[in-house]
């Protein structure tokens, strides 16, 4: 027979700060990844396919050596990993809203901003692991990378990823009970952002309207900054532009996301 046992009660649980709450949410989100790290590696399939199939086409069409083409292409692939990985992350929240998991965290004494920030920060860890794997895979084919540039590049990706992940959570909160709506928004936004960033193909010869669209796409600046950073050019205007775009994305994403979480 099952019998409930219980140690004597303590006093009312103590107040915790936003930083502690964020850390606790982050640890909860990371535990499944740490328990099963191979799940994070499965998400590498898509970027590796792009690298393996699209890379040779680029090399052939550009007429440049493979190493030089990869120098241009790999940073774009890393931004693509950040884009696809963080854009889909709201789907996890949708799943937790459909069960009672999200509701439980709303009744727990956690600050609403910590609920959002802890989740968004979680996206950084698999992002960096995947980025390292892609760089390592590319090294034998002539790809070279500046270590300080790589580290700064990961910081840039992390800032952008937190912001874009927060936006994905905001969309999920707005699409409660309507998964299809989340995926329509996801598909409608993600492909134009990708194509109009020049991460896969250069936009130098694009029509004027595409260049205008690319100029207002924050991802264009992040991609350009990553290319400069990986090449070891750390203080260029493109790098500053990339950080500015990532920080603005993060601020907007966190503001909208925290607002959505407070209303959840």
């Amino acid at each position: 027979m099952i019998t409930l046992t219980q140690t004597p009660p303590t006093s009312t649980p103590p107040r915790t700060g936003v930083a502690t709450d964020t850390w606790n949410v982050l640890v909860r989100e990371l535990r499944p990844v740490l328990r099963d790290p191979f799940s994070a590696l499965f998400s590498l399939v898509q970027p590796l396919i792009f690298l393996g199939l699209f890379g040779p086409l680029l090399v052939a069409s550009s007429g440049l050596p493979a190493g030089e083409t990869l120098q241009w292409f790999v940073p774009g692939i890393l931004v693509m990993v950040a884009l696809f990985g963080t854009a889909s992350t709201g789907a996890n929240l949708l799943g937790e809203m459909q069960t009672g998991s999200h509701e439980r965290t709303l009744v727990a004494p956690l600050s609403r901003s910590a609920l959002l920030m802890g989740r968004a920060l979680k996206e950084v860890v698999p992002l960096i692991v995947q980025g390292l794997v892609i760089c390592l895979v590319s090294l034998p084919f002539g790809f070279t990378v500046s270590v300080p540039g790589l580290l700064l590049g990961f910081v840039l990706l992390a800032v952008f990823g937190i912001g874009f992940g927060a936006l994905s959570y905001s969309v999920a909160l707005a699409c409660r009970g309507r998964d299809w709506m989340f995926w329509i928004i996801h598909q409608t936004v993600i492909f134009p952002l990708m194509i109009l960033s020049g991460m896969l193909l250069p936009l130098d010869d694009a029509p004027g309207w595409m260049k205008v669209a690319a100029a207002v796409n924050p991802l264009s600046y992040v991609v350009q900054a990553e290319r400069d950073l990986f090449a070891g050019s750390l203080g260029t205007p493109a790098v500053l532009g990339g950080f500015a775009a990532a920080v603005i994305t993060a601020i907007i994403g966190l503001m909208v996301g925290i607002r959505g979480m407070r209303r959840a």
Binding site: T12, P13, P14, R15, T16, T20, D21, N24, V27, R28, R31, P32, R35, G95, E96, Q98, T99, G100, S101, E103, R104, T105, V107, A108, P109, L110
Partner: peptide
């Protein structure tokens, strides 16, 4: 000060059972 058990299953599907309890304890300080 309160405990809440809602209508739905409140544990994350991809979480381990004990992990979810550890997280919940941390949430309450």
């Amino acid at each position: 000060r309160i405990g809440y058990i809602g209508q739905g299953n409140s544990a994350g599907h991809n979480q381990r059972v004990r992990d979810e309890l550890l997280s919940q304890g941390a949430f309450y300080g």
